[in-house]
């Protein structure tokens, strides 16, 4: 009896799964025919809060339109897009990952919409008393950075080179938010993240300027490109969303989270 019940449940679950798939496909196909339309925006993890606000504003101005945000590390998003993840817009945390997508001819020419700066994040109160990049080559400190292939890791490597400092990190994380988490939890004494990450940490992390000359400052800067994806199901809405990001209002929202103008 139990086995039979289990089999019935399994069968019902499988049927529901299949039904769900078909329903989803239908909804996608007929979306433009009805009043409810939907666009999917792939956005870098560091843009999460700002993009959520911009998407809410966009939805308010376009009744019936839903913006689905897919946030994650830019390199992971680029991989997903190349592997065929559906979507309309891609906002990357660096040019390199956008190039990965444009090289495959999967996106229209991108536009830069924001800038960010690498900084040192320390736990609130700066217990290790760090004053700048020069302090971070101390072997006794637990310093965490992004792994080289991740955008924030590439920026960190550039900063190290410009400053002539060689860090020996105790961990090379997969995303900038992972670095920040190691700092806010007190596991790490310092980490290299973007100023916007520190601003969004709710006071759990503090920023310490990198120090050094103009070369370091130039190396610490990074720009965010946005582009419509070639496979966009809603190209018109995608362009309107990009326009909203580039508008004065969009820029003001980005600025409120610590992003610089493009």
């Amino acid at each position: 009896m139990t086995a039979r019940l289990a089999a019935l449940t399994a069968g019902a679950a499988a049927a529901a799964l299949l039904a769900g798939c078909t329903a989803g496909a239908d909804a996608g196909a007929s979306a433009s025919a009805t009043d409810t339309r939907e666009i999917t925006v792939h956005a870098a993890a560091s843009l999460t809060a700002a993009m959520t606000d911009i998407a809410a504003g966009f939805e308010a101005e376009h009744p019936g339109v839903t913006v689905r945000l897919n946030v994650g590390g830019s390199s992971g998003l680029a991989t997903q897009i190349i592997e065929g993840a559906p979507g309309d817009v891609f906002a990357s945390a660096d040019q390199a990952q956008m190039t990965v997508v444009t090289d495959e001819e999967l996106a229209e020419p991108p536009v830069t919409f924001a800038t960010n700066t690498l900084t040192i994040a320390v736990p609130a109160g700066n217990p290790a008393g760090i004053t700048g990049l020069d302090d971070l080559d101390d072997q006794a400190l637990d310093v965490v950075v992004c792994a080289a292939p991740v955008p924030c890791g590439a920026v960190a490597a550039g900063v190290e080179e410009a400053a002539g400092v060689t860090l020996s990190p105790v961990s090379e994380e997969q995303s900038v938010t992972d670095v920040l988490a190691k700092v806010t939890s007190g596991q790490a004494d310092a980490g290299l993240v973007y100023t916007t990450d520190v601003a969004g940490s709710g006071g759990e992390a503090e920023a310490v300027p990198l120090g050094g000359g103009e070369d370091v400052a130039a190396a610490a800067g990074t720009s965010y490109p946005i582009a419509r994806l070639a496979q966009a199901a809603e190209p018109e809405l995608a362009d309107q969303f990009i326009a909203a990001v580039l508008s004065d209002e969009g820029e003001a929202t980005l600025a409120s989270y610590g992003f610089g103008p493009a």
Binding site: S75, T79, P149, V150, S171, E172, D178, Q187
Partner: peptide, 25 residues
Amino acid sequence: TLTFAGSLEGVTRTVPLEIYLQREI
């Protein structure tokens, strides 16, 4: 491991973490 230990070659980056990192490069 990723949450608790971090990710550094030869110290904490085990095979699954290496796969996760390589997947993007």
